[in-house]
Amino acid sequence: MALVTFTPLGFYCAQADLYIDPLRKVSKALVTHAHSDHARPGMQHYLCHTQSVNILKLRLGQRISVQSMAYGESVWMNGVEITLFPAGHVPGSAQVRLIYKGEVWVISGDYKTVGDGLTPAFEAVRCHHFVTESTFGLPIFQWRDQQTVFDDINAWWRENASAGKPSVLLGYSLGKAQRILKYLDRSVGAVVCHGAIAASNIALQESGFDFGEWKDASGGLASLQDRGIRTEESLIVCPPNALRSSWISPLGRYSLANCSGWMAVSKSGDWGGVDRGFVLSDHADWPQLLEAVLATGAEHVHVTHGFSEVLSRYLRETHQLNADVVEKGMLEMQGE
């Protein structure tokens, strides 16, 4: 029997009785990163990276039982050696390496191989079985250098500020928002964060991440004027669901942009009402996926959520690897 099996609850290591990113309530859960499709509430015990602890408690409650470990540190469970390696996806994200009787598995969670200057860079780990994501597993997805994207964002912001129009930038509250914050040009105006992002920011700052100065708008946008912040010149970072609430309404007319990998394709459906799309993703694009898979030297590749059929067929045909698709329905497909 294989060391790791694919069950309806998630990836399961029977020898260690450990689930990795489980979907339902289990006793022991290893969480690769704190995004809601990987870290779910209700587990008896959590195991995660040190820098994920604060954000995990923020999202799942302060009273959860959580044990943390650093990158490269090993934990032994019934003969299985468990080690975390940086995945480069979001702050605190990790790949998991499981070794038992010489058999090596790496479950990568979500990852990107190009460093963003905020999270520790991806590290390729040699293994026999590699579990990879395929969110952007099509050749049409090829990211540009992130600095050129941030130059575009800053130029767009400057343009709006000179026209006296507030700029609203959509980004997920964990990872994407902090990556944007780090590279914004503060000379244009103030950077304002939605309450959900502000909470993540505080939790991450406690974990030792630094992404520059920002203003908290959890008290409402109307209160900004009292604090002397000119909204016309400011850039407001908020998660996509904030647009559907009354939180945004004091702003009046504003320019809206989205920061996502899906912005590469004009018809991908995420465009609803957005003036400008910036192609920036925390996931690996097509060349990065291939690079990561080949760098591990794995003979067996298991492809999960996204374009898993496409990527696994490509790996089989072009690189002669034993690539298969992890059963559909086991892991739900999520956007970012």
Binding site: L138, P139, I140, V265, S268, F307, V310
Partner: peptide, 12 residues
């Protein structure tokens, strides 16, 4: 086949 997949997703 890979191109067909790309075209299907890109839409045009």
């Amino acid at each position: 086949w890979l191109f067909i997949e790309c075209q299907r997703f890109a839409g045009s």
